[in-house]
Amino acid sequence: MRTDAIARNSGPDAAAAQAAAVIARPVLDVDDALRDQRAPRDQRAGQGRGRPSPWRKVVLYGLLSVLAIPFVFPTWWMITSSFKPISQIFAFPPELWPSNPTLDGYVGAFTAQPFALQYFNSMYIAIVVTVGTMLFASMAGYAFARIRFRGQGILFLVVLTGLLIPAEVTIVPLFQMFNSWGMIDTHWPLILVSTFGAPSVLATFIMRQYFITLPVELEEAARIDGLGRWRIYWSIALPLSRSALAAVAIFTFLHVWNLYLEPTVYLQTPELFTLPQALTRYTDAYGGEMWNVQLAAATLTALPVLIVFVFAQKQFVEGLAQTGLKG
């Protein structure tokens, strides 16, 4: 397995890599898992217990359906309740389908707060950070994997400390630093810390692990053709690493999309809020509740990503299969 290769290294590099492997593992294995799903049947001999009997199948479906309730019901309830008038949301018995559907909640979502702007904020921050992370993490990952330079091991170790220090630990000094730079109540702290700080280290690690596996011959051929490092990285290594980049992109996007502590600390103006922060601020002028509005906004926040996931899951898996980098 991947970690063995790391273990065979010696020196600080190996120790650091081992530390990082702990945290990097889920992402890498998600690709593995997803790819395995697409592997030809005969290669999956190890899985399962063969074909279960029809009776066992019924039990299995029943069990899975019951287990699926807490995973499906909240989303279902969120979507349906967002179309209910506020007085119906806590009606008893609970309605599984709105009897008097209304769009009041959706109208309210956009009038009570600058929701469209907040949506844009979340979206552009997530995209900027995702693209930035893909670029800088792949550059760093490439250099750590393919270029030899003095102090490489130590420098890599320094970078990996980012994995060991949760962002929550450094939130107070970061607040004071951005304060001294006049960046409080701007998007800069969210963009800069997410792109260059601790959250991006995982991406660098994933990219490094990926670039290590590329065959050396590709680069040699490129160099004979007179390509510089940047061209080799940009035109050869990067296109080959699509599946790793996809994993980095998905995880970075979800991470930034979900940030809550950081925007709560750094942002104060509703026009600058991100979605998670905005969702918790749906109260009327005097702190009264606006449940239907809040649920409508939550639905608008959750649904697009969910839909993209359902489709992208397939794309992602197929993308992995096409790279021809099966173990």
Binding site: A140, A143, F144, V159, P173, F196, A198, T204
Partner: peptide, 16 residues
Amino acid sequence: FIAPQFLGIVLFVLVP
């Protein structure tokens, strides 16, 4: 190549 990431870690992780 590693500069952006490395400086980011120093500035946003080690200094804090």
